[in-house]
């Protein structure tokens, strides 16, 4: 496809409310690559919380709003979350299985919806944006990549985030045992099944700690917020970062980590 000049950013609820700085990093990376970013201001939520809980009627109301809004603009949609991305590109089909008009709309939209790392690698063809940490191998920045489940298995984006991290000079990807295992977030699951979720988180944090990484990098703030909450409670020394933040920091003056 021809490289788009502009995109619409679907910033997701969690970035809007809890991690606005991640949204700014995403914008900064996209603009640096010459993309004009538009933010449809009347966006709300993709509807996943209701959908996952089984409340499809509620989810459909929200999803119709989102579909109408994003379909109105022909620009591709960039979503800095594997989970919301999977919701919009795949789960909407299930949600609107009996509503032909919106089903067609959701199919059309999913053709031009991209998770952030997928957009960079698959659409823009970029794996190295010139980011760098430190001065040499001795002071490499050791980061653990956490493939969020919906990005990895929902969107099937296994290689893109890794390729972008591999393109960062002075960043060493830590080996993490059971790297592809869920952190236990799962939205409402973390609350309704708090005990199981906590057990899963404990495993994940143990494996991350053993990896010797300084930061956990992922493409989903939901998972990162979850891990950050556990890290803080346990008093561990581990930062959480969205991939866009890592790239931005590696590009700018903030590169001393």
């Amino acid at each position: 496809m021809t490289k788009p000049k502009s995109v619409q950013l679907f910033h997701t609820c969690i970035i809007n409310e809890v991690y606005p700085e991640v949204g700014m990093s995403v914008v900064s990376i996209l603009e640096r690559l010459g993309i004009t970013v538009e933010v449809p201001l009347s966006q709300t939520c993709c509807g996943q919380p209701a959908f996952n809980a089984g409340f499809h009627a509620d989810a459909r109301k929200v999803a119709r709003h989102t579909l109408d809004l994003l379909s109105a603009n022909p620009a591709p949609v960039v979503i800095p979350s594997g989970s919301c991305g999977d919701m919009i590109t795949h789960q909407y089909h299930m949600l609107f299985a009996d509503e032909p008009e919106y089903l067609a709309k959701s199919h059309a939209l999913s053709e031009r919806c991209y998770e952030f790392s997928v957009f960079l690698v698959d659409v823009l063809g970029i794996t190295d944006i010139g980011a760098r940490f430190g001065t040499g191998a001795a002071d490499a920045f050791k980061a653990a990549y956490h493939p969020s489940c919906h990005l990895l298995r929902g969107l099937g984006a296994k290689t893109q985030p890794k390729a972008l991290l591999a393109g960062v000079q002075g960043l060493q990807c830590a080996d993490v045992h059971d790297q592809e295992e869920c952190c236990g977030f799962g939205g409402m699951f973390s609350v309704k099944n708090a005990a199981i979720s906590s057990g899963m988180l404990a495993n994940k944090l143990r494996n991350l700690e053993a990896s010797g990484a300084k930061s956990v990098v992922s493409c989903d703030m939901g998972c990162l917020m979850h891990m950050a909450g556990g890290i803080r409670r346990k008093g561990m020394k581990l930062e959480v970062k969205h991939l866009a933040q890592v790239l931005e920091e590696g590009l700018g003056e903030k590169a001393e980590l």
């Binding site: 910033h11 409310e17 949204g23 099944n193 005990a195 906590s198 917020m225 909450g229 803080r232």
Partner: peptide, 25 residues
């Protein structure tokens, strides 16, 4: 309440003072 399940093993990050849309505007 129900949300207490979260804080069983995790702290919860409070929303940021300014939303992304505020920063953007």
């Amino acid at each position: 309440g129900l949300a207490g399940g979260w804080t069983r093993s995790r702290d919860m990050k409070a929303p940021a003072p300014k939303s992304f849309q505020q920063l953007w505007r």
